[in-house]
Simulated scan of single mutants.
Amino acid sequence: MASHNSLPAFDELPLRSGDPKFAAWGLWGDDDELGTLNLLTPDVVKLASQEIRTGQRITLNLPLDAFVRPMNPVRKPCDHRIIAKGHANDDELNINTQGASHWDGLRHFPYQTTLQYYNGVTQDDISGPSANSKIGIQNVAEHAIVGRGVLLDWASYATEKRIAYSPFDRFGIPLDQLLEVAALQKVEFRPGDILFIRTGWLESYRGLSIEQRRALPDRAIRSSCGVEASLEAIRWHWDNRFAAVASDTVAYEAWPSPKPAGVAMHEVFLSGWGMPIGECFDLEGLAETCKKERRWTFFLSSVPLNVPGGVASPPNAVAIL
C-alpha cells in the first residue's frame, strides 16, 4: 500500500494507460474504497491530536433545514415529523443528504466522458442489475474523517484586499491568492491535512431576504464562487497530499466549472483520487475563533452517516482547538 512518502508525482497521473485524466486508480489497490482517506493513518491522527490546546469545540454543521430551499431545486427539503406515542415520542426525518452541510462521497460525480467512478466503478455497480455497496459512504463512516484541519480564510483576505466578487456568480479563486492567504496565516501543510476554504458564500446567503433565498435555486444557471479548477490548482491539491477538502460554498470549485484543465475538480477529486468534497460547511464561527487565537489549524472529527451504498452524508463535524 502506498504511503504519503511514496505517492507518485502529479505528472505521472493517470497511473495506467487508458484511465481518465489525472486518475490515481490502483494506487492503494484495485479494490480500494477509501482513496485519499488512506492518508489518515494512526500516526497522522495521533500527531493531529496535538492541535487540541484550549479544548474549544466548534461544530461545522448547518441545521438540516438551514436553507429555505436546497440549492438544487430537485433535492427535497428536510421534513421532520414527531411521532407522539402517548408514553413517549419518536421522530422521522426525510432528507436529501446533500440538502445542507454534507460530504460528497465517491458515488456522487463520475468522470463525465466515461461515466466511471473511483477505481472504475460503473453506474451498473451502483444502481444497475449488479448493484452493490461498493465505494458507498459507509466506508467513510467506518473509517471517519479525523485528523488535522486547516482553514484558509480567503473571505477575510478578499475583504481586506477589496476584491470585488459575488458569491452567487461563477467566480474562481485563483491559486496564487490561496497561497498568499496560507503565507499570511503562516500555515504549513502536512500530508493528510483536511483543507477548509472560507469563501464568504454562507455569510452572503444569510444576508439575503427570505424571498431572495427562496428564489436562489431557480436561477437559469445556479452559479457560485469557489476555487478555480486550473491545472495548477489541481496539481497543488495533489502535491499537498490533502485527505479531504471542504468549503462554505455549494461546490468547493467555482460552479459551473469552466474546466480550464479539461476536467472539473469534482471529477478528479471524487472519482480520480477518491477524495471527499465537503460543501456548505458552516465556517463562520471557526473563522472567528481562528482569527482570535491567531492560528488556523485544529483537530477535526467527522463521522458521516453509515448508509451502505450511500452517495453523500451530513458531516457531523466538529473542530477542536
Rank of each mutant, 00 (worst) to 15 (best):
V263W: 13
V263A: 08
V263Y: 12
A264H: 11
A264T: 10
A264I: 00
M265E: 10
M265D: 08
M265L: 09
M265T: 12
M265G: 12
H266N: 15
H266C: 08
H266W: 10
H266D: 13
H266P: 10
E267V: 05
E267F: 00
E267G: 12
E267K: 10
V268I: 02
V268P: 07
F269K: 00
F269P: 04
F269D: 07
F269C: 07
F269S: 12
L270Y: 01
L270R: 04
L270V: 03
L270F: 01
S271Y: 01
S271R: 02
S271K: 07
G272M: 02
G272C: 04
G272T: 10
G272Y: 01
G272V: 08
G272Q: 02
G272D: 09
G272H: 04
W273K: 03
G274W: 03
G274H: 05
G274L: 02
G274E: 01
G274S: 04
M275K: 02
M275H: 03
M275D: 14
M275G: 09
M275W: 00
M275T: 09
M275E: 07
P276N: 07
P276S: 06
P276I: 04
P276E: 10
P276T: 05
I277Q: 13
I277F: 03
I277H: 09
I277M: 13
I277L: 08
I277S: 11
G278H: 10
G278I: 00
G278Q: 11
G278F: 00
G278E: 03
G278Y: 01
E279A: 13
E279W: 09
E279R: 14
E279N: 15
C280M: 13
C280G: 12
C280D: 07
C280I: 05
C280R: 13
C280F: 03
F281Q: 09
F281E: 08
F281I: 01
F281S: 10
D282K: 05
D282R: 04
D282H: 07
D282M: 01
L283N: 04
L283I: 00
L283W: 01
L283H: 04
L283M: 02
L283Q: 04
E284Q: 15
E284N: 15
E284R: 15
E284V: 11
G285T: 09
G285V: 05
L286Q: 05
L286N: 05
L286I: 09
A287Y: 04
A287K: 06
A287P: 12
A287T: 12
A287C: 12
A287R: 06
A287L: 08
E288G: 15
E288Q: 15
E288I: 11
E288F: 11
E288M: 12
E288H: 14
E288C: 14
T289S: 15
T289C: 11
T289I: 04
T289Q: 15
C290M: 04
C290H: 01
C290K: 05
K291R: 14
K291I: 08
K291T: 14
K291P: 15
K291E: 12
K291A: 14
K291S: 15
K291D: 14
K292W: 08
K292Y: 13
K292Q: 14
K292T: 11
